[in-house]
């Protein structure tokens, strides 16, 4: 009963703090409208929160992840007592207040040193979480190479068969993909491709002595160089850019199936898109929409028998009169009559 009352109290407090604001002028109205759900979503805004004690390594790692994520990143400069696996109410509050749907929390304790938690939200509720421990860390400054322009989109590279088979790594892949590249874009300037983030899962430790059966995950960032290869496709060379992070997987929380189902709901496809073959509907292969937006179809015709093709009628090509005589008398008569008329 008391917990229930506490729940009601917290919700009322949150509601009081996040009361629905009626816009008083056009500018605030636009700002509120920008927060409303959209069919094609903006990239996730990520909030970086330090826990009661983050430690230098995690602090730096978060800073540089934020540098890669900018401008869709918010940093909380103060320390916060936040334990995402125990109580997520403050996360929900921050998410709503800042219109952010992802968190990176840094927390270092004796039991779990140098921990970083990736939290993904749906509709200001926690969808799933994954805690990782930062083991190896090398800053961007330690690589004396050119850096990518901030705000450019990275390429992503995942390497390991575990990203397809292991549920923990599937989740991590989904989280990191959402973190770095979750935006749906319709085009990209090929010259603007400057760097790549490579995420590799190590081999599964097969020795039974190690308590954790989860592989290490290596995150590396490289700048790309395109060398002319003589063909349309250039040859790619990579240079380490940093940061480089080695992670171990720790606690996690899987998404609630009901919430995940809601989160994976897609908008209804427009008729034109279905004709293009988007979505899970089978593509109509004989229909296509051309550049002008007109629907064009192709119709299949059986092979033509050219022997039956009607060409110009000539006397020489006609079947001989004898054959015609044999076939039918009356028919021949009619033919003659017709010919006479034509001559007249």
């Amino acid at each position: 009963m008391s917990t229930f009352r506490a729940f009601i109290l917290t919700t009322t407090v949150i509601l009081a703090m996040l009361r629905t604001i009626k816009p008083k002028n056009a500018r605030s109205k636009r700002a509120l409208e920008a927060r409303e759900p959209k069919e094609v979503e903006d990239p996730r805004t990520v909030i970086f929160v330090k826990g009661t004690h983050a430690g230098e390594k995690v602090d730096h790692a978060m800073k540089e992840l934020m540098a890669l994520k900018r401008p869709h990143a918010i940093s909380f400069s103060k320390k916060n007592t936040v334990r995402p696996f125990e109580d997520a109410t403050s996360l929900e509050f921050w998410s709503q207040k800042n219109d952010a749907s992802m968190f990176v929390l840094g927390q270092s304790t004796k039991k779990r040193p140098d921990g970083m938690t990736f939290v993904r939200m749906y509709d200001s509720r926690v969808l799933d979480m994954c805690e990782v421990g930062v083991e190896g860390w090398k800053s961007m400054q330690e690589f004396k190479t050119a850096k990518a322009t901030p705000g450019h989109k990275p390429l992503l590279h995942f390497a390991s068969d575990l990203f397809d088979t292991h549920p923990r790594l599937q989740q991590l892949k989904s989280l990191l993909l959402d973190f770095f590249n979750g935006e749906i874009i319709d085009s990209i300037c090929l010259k603007g491709i400057e760097y790549v983030i490579s995420i590799t899962a190590g081999p599964l430790p097969d020795s039974p002595s190690t308590s954790s059966e989860l592989p290490k995950v290596h995150i590396r960032a490289y700048t790309t160089r395109f060398l002319s290869s003589g063909t349309r496709v250039p040859r790619v060379e990579l240079t380490p850019m940093g940061p480089s992070i080695d992670l171990t997987l720790r606690r996690h929380q899987d998404p609630d199936p009901e919430l995940l189902k809601q989160a994976l709901r897609r908008p209804k496809l427009k008729k034109q898109d279905i004709e293009k073959g988007l979505g899970n509907k089978k593509k109509m292969r004989n229909l296509e929409v051309d550049e002008m937006g007109d629907l064009r179809g192709r119709v299949h015709l059986a092979k033509q028998d050219l022997g039956k093709l009607q060409t110009r009628k000539m006397k020489g090509l006609k079947t001989s009169r004898d054959d015609a005589d044999e076939s039918d008398e009356s028919d021949e008569d009619e033919g003659q009559v017709r010919r006479k008329r034509r001559k007249v």
Binding site: D178, L190, L260
Partner: peptide
């Protein structure tokens, strides 16, 4: 680089297909 491109001031712009990976949405439809 195989994708259809349109020229622009800053170089060729490739038209990307729709993503095939399903990612959860941040807000309801």
């Amino acid at each position: 680089f195989q994708l259809p491109v349109t020229p622009s001031e800053d170089g060729p712009v490739a038209k990307l297909p729709a993503p095939t990976t399903l990612l959860p949405r941040a807000k309801p439809l």
